[in-house]
Design a binder for these strands. Structure first.
Lengths: 192, 192
DNA sequence: GGATAACTTGACGCTAGGGTCAAGTTGACG
DNA sequence: CGTCAACTTGACCCTAGCGTCAAGTTATCC
């Protein structure tokens, strides 16, 4: 369990395993979410389950090791994009739409939203950053009077969780259907 | 497994058990959804798990035996109410709002929506009836031009599943928050 | 090329829940 | 009040997944 202790370098075989496990975990998490059985990931990496525990200390450590590559980068890109949109309404619409898009492409994002594995430090940091961003954007929209006044950050969170879970529970909708539903939601955010 | 064979009446003790198991199942399904462990229901009814299998033949049979009392009656009431609303927009709004209300009160409704246990004949019948009703109401709304033209029965289904799953995954929201979110959704259904 | 610390792993124990059955108990009927 | 079919049940097996460890293997360094 010291893939993250640069002071003592790993032995060559162990380093190779770390690489393979990370790759397998990323692929598996992409396809099945952060709850994928560790045994399956181990098998895909060509090692035994125990090695995953040795190298990463369990699911939380493994998530910590790959969450950046999986969603942190994308989510930060989404936040940056929203930050640079001048029009307050467009900023909200872009942000909400981009989050939906990420949900469609990355089931793991929904697990991250749900904080199913809150022992991952990276995940906690991500959640905090995203919540901040959401609150800032909504305040801008409210102040400018372009956003329904009774719409809160909690409402967006709830809607995203709902959408993510449905996406997983149901057979994946066509992109067209999905985008139309996203549009319904965004349209509902205009002031009444 | 013959609680439903009126030709051969049950022995007194068996009949008593059927009653107790039904009651326990209804309470458990109300609280935890249709997936509640049968062992738990058996314990609450004061019988062993095997007796539940003897009397009802497993989860599907048990659901069939109580789904009416759990949600069929309520859902039919909702459909009737919508049928008698003259204004096409109000009919849709009432129907959608009432379904959301039922979801809030009855987690089992979401399981029924998801058809998690499609071997229950009653559940299949319910689903068919509800889908019909939805389609009829939406057509009325579209024809009257009071409902967003691109809103479909599938969209309503997706939204309800999403809402039900979020309701279960997250800590239950206040009634106020919940109703506000329902309002967002309904407001989004007006024509653009 | 040997010593040894680092590393890997098969086999194991644990939990939760589904489902079944032989053996025992009991209600109902003559 | 005895007989027997109806009924109940504890004990069992099965699956899926998590997490651990003693014993064996191997990379590395001298």
């Amino acid at each position: 369990m010291n893939s993250s202790t640069p002071g003592v370098p790993l032995r060559a075989d162990a380093a190779r395993n770390v690489t393979q496990i990370r790759a397998a975990a990323i692929a598996a998490f992409r396809g099945r979410g952060l709850g994928t059985p560790l045994e399956e990931i181990a098998a895909a990496a060509g090692v035994s389950k125990a090695t995953v525990y040795n190298r990463f200390g369990g699911r939380d450590g493994l998530i910590d090791a790959v969450i950046g590559e999986l969603v942190a980068a994308e989510l930060h890109a989404i936040m940056d994009r929203a930050r640079w949109v001048d029009d307050p309404w467009q900023a909200v619409a872009t942000y909400v739409g981009d989050r939906r898009d990420l949900q469609f492409r990355e089931p793991a994002f929904t697990d991250a939203l749900l904080m199913l594995y809150p022992n991952s430090a990276q995940l906690v940091a991500l959640a905090t950053a995203a919540t901040d961003m959401t609150e800032r954007l909504l305040r801008r929209g409210h102040d400018a009077g372009v956003l329904r006044e009774d719409f809160t950050a909690g409402d967006l969170y709830y809607a995203d969780v709902a959408n993510g879970l449905a996406l997983r529970a149901l057979r994946t909708p066509s992109r067209e259907d999905y985008d139309r539903r996203t549009r319904f939601f965004i349209d509902g955010l205009h002031p009444r």
